[in-house]
């Protein structure tokens, strides 16, 4: 039996037994190798679930939809290791109760699909723990190397050019599982800290705010990157911030559901190199 068939069978069993009220998984997309999120609540529909190496979207963000979990019933969700880390962060930030989440874990290595054993988030500690030691990091090594070699001025020019493309559609925000605020700072207009119009000041403000709000929280799932209609390498900023947070505070986001948010917690031996 393929992993897809195994997971379909498991979904059917959970739904018909009432153990979960919904399974969030992947379905066929509009073109051949595209996959889109589907929400199954009837055991008869599990045949629509698809699992292959094209399933790359991080689905964890759907769990914090208003009211979904407030009836305290369980929801199952297909997740890669990044998505599992996202569950830890959402639980640590009180956005969901991790016990309500049933995980269908999977990973893709060298185009080969692999099932991850476990049901609840803490059972995946080994899988996500290995990320800390062996961080796959940012995939586009060439771009990373190019950026690291730049001087501060060159880097500024690079980002200025990239952000010039931004049309302030906020698709990155909508796609990000960590952007769960009911009112985003950019939607606050009394006062209007972030300029709404899509010129260089507002674009810079938005992208810098976004980078800071994701520091120590981003799991580098790439949802933002894929959502961006103008192809700004958003993940590159997040990766850089993750490297900085690891160096400064020895923190990797999403390691456990009780992990303290790095920017809100304080340890006496925290490095203070950033204080002038």
């Amino acid at each position: 039996m393929s992993i897809e068939q195994q997971y379909q069978a498991r979904a059917k069993e959970l739904l018909s037994g009432g153990a979960v009220k919904m399974v969030i998984g992947y379905g066929k997309g509009t073109t051949g190798n595209r996959r889109r999120p589907i929400f199954i609540s009837s055991p008869d529909d599990v045949g629509r679930l698809v699992l292959d190496d094209s399933c790359i979207i991080n689905l964890s963000g759907y769990l914090v939809s208003e009211g979904l979990l407030s009836d305290e019933k369980r929801v199952a969700v297909f997740l890669r290791p990044e998505g599992i880390r996202a569950i830890n962060i959402l639980a640590a930030e009180s956005q969901l109760d991790a016990d309500q989440i049933v995980i269908f874990g999977f990973d893709v290595n060298d185009n080969e699909l692999r099932a991850l054993k476990g049901i609840h988030v803490e059972e995946f500690a080994d899988v996500i723990g290995s990320i800390r030691e062996n961080n796959p990091g940012f995939a586009d090594k060439e771009l990373l190397e190019k950026i690291e070699k730049m001087t501060a001025q060159e880097r500024f020019a690079f980002w200025q050019e990239e952000f010039a493309k931004c049309i302030k559609c906020y698709a990155c925000r909508q796609a990000c599982p960590m952007c769960y605020c009911r009112r985003c700072i950019v939607d606050s207009n009394q006062p209007q800290w972030v300029n709404t119009s899509s010129h260089s000041l507002g674009n810079f403000e938005w992208n810098i705010v976004r980078a800071f709000h994701l520091s120590g929280r981003c799991v580098e799932c790439g949802n933002c990157d894929r959502a961006c209609p103008v192809n700004i390498p958003l993940r590159l900023i997040n990766h850089k911030m993750a490297v900085e947070v690891l160096g400064a505070f020895d923190h990797v986001a999403g390691m456990s559901k009780t992990q303290e948010p790095v920017l809100a917690s304080f340890k006496k031996d925290d490095s203070e190199t950033f204080i002038l």
Partner: peptide, 15 residues
């Protein structure tokens, strides 16, 4: 309270 997302980072951050 209307806009608070309840992440409770402030609870930890408050000295």
């Amino acid at each position: 309270e209307a806009t608070c997302a309840g992440c409770w980072g402030c609870v930890l951050a408050c000295p």
